[in-house]
């Protein structure tokens, strides 16, 4: 993985202290909703992740199997957060995150994307965000545009992603740091105006979020 040369110059550095607090809060919120059996499973899974316990087959650590099984063990509602906690406990770096993403199903990929801001990573995981943005799976597109993308995604890719949200119906509220990054972005404003013109010419409705984002581009930086 190569750092993105197009990354914004003012990207904030990773912040392990605040990250640890956020992860503790995630753990508490997910624990509260789990059955005692699932809670016990999660505690054991996180211990395996911290200890790098060998897994059920060659080349597979125990936590990687837990990561895949999380939805069956903890339920659909908790699965994303449980998977984020497992990746965090495993101290997944950019390479590990990429491996789990590449070999994951759609739900696992979404969880890797959600985990990115909690893993203290540099820009090396941007290719995962870019991969998710190439899909039109709205669940992946939305998950890709979290705080990690706000911090590390280059300007061109970020503008394309905003436009893609309008195309595919991902609500603008899913885009982390939207107001900050859109402020003063004349190029994004041009793209939005062109898109509105294209839709109007075709007799089709302009997505409701478009004007809102256009307003944000007119704000002072």
């Amino acid at each position: 993985m190569t750092p993105n040369p197009d990354a914004p110059a003012d990207a904030p550095a990773a912040e392990p202290a605040a990250g640890a607090t956020a992860v503790a809060a995630l753990r508490a919120s997910v624990d509260a909703g789990l059955t005692p059996e699932a809670r016990e499973w999660l505690a054991a899974a996180l211990a395996d992740a911290a200890a790098d316990t060998p897994g059920p087959s060659a080349g597979l650590l125990a936590w990687e199997a837990h990561f895949a099984a999380a939805r069956r063990r903890c339920g659909a509602a908790a699965a994303d957060t449980v998977r984020v906690l497992i990746l965090h406990a495993a101290r997944a770096d950019e390479q590990v995150a990429a491996r789990v993403y590449d070999r994951g199903d759609a739900a696992e990929r979404r969880a890797v994307l959600r985990a990115l801001p909690h893993l203290g990573l540099g820009p090396g995981a941007v290719p995962l965000v870019e991969d998710a943005l190439r899909t039109n799976d709205t669940r992946l597109v939305a998950a890709a545009l979290g705080p990690y993308a706000a911090a590390h995604l280059g300007d061109h890719a970020w503008r394309q992603a905003v436009l893609k949200c309008l195309f595919t119906g991902v609500p603008a509220d899913e885009i982390a740091g939207l107001a900050e990054r859109a402020a003063g972005d004349a190029e994004l404003a041009r793209m939005l105006a062109d898109y509105a013109r294209e839709r109007t010419a075709a007799g089709r409705a302009v997505p409701a979020d478009l004007d809102r984002i256009l307003d944000l581009t007119r704000k002072e930086v």
Binding site: R72, R134, T135, N136, D137, T138, R139, F167, T168, G169, V170
Partner: peptide, 28 residues
């Protein structure tokens, strides 16, 4: 297998596209 789920995942609002293809041709 213990893994059958007989309710299909509900497509989310506006989510009728995937990997660059519009499936229902109703979106973009």
């Amino acid at each position: 297998s213990g893994r059958l789920e007989l309710e299909p995942e509900k497509p989310e609002a506006g989510g009728a596209t995937y990997e660059g293809n519009s499936i229902l041709r109703g979106g973009s």
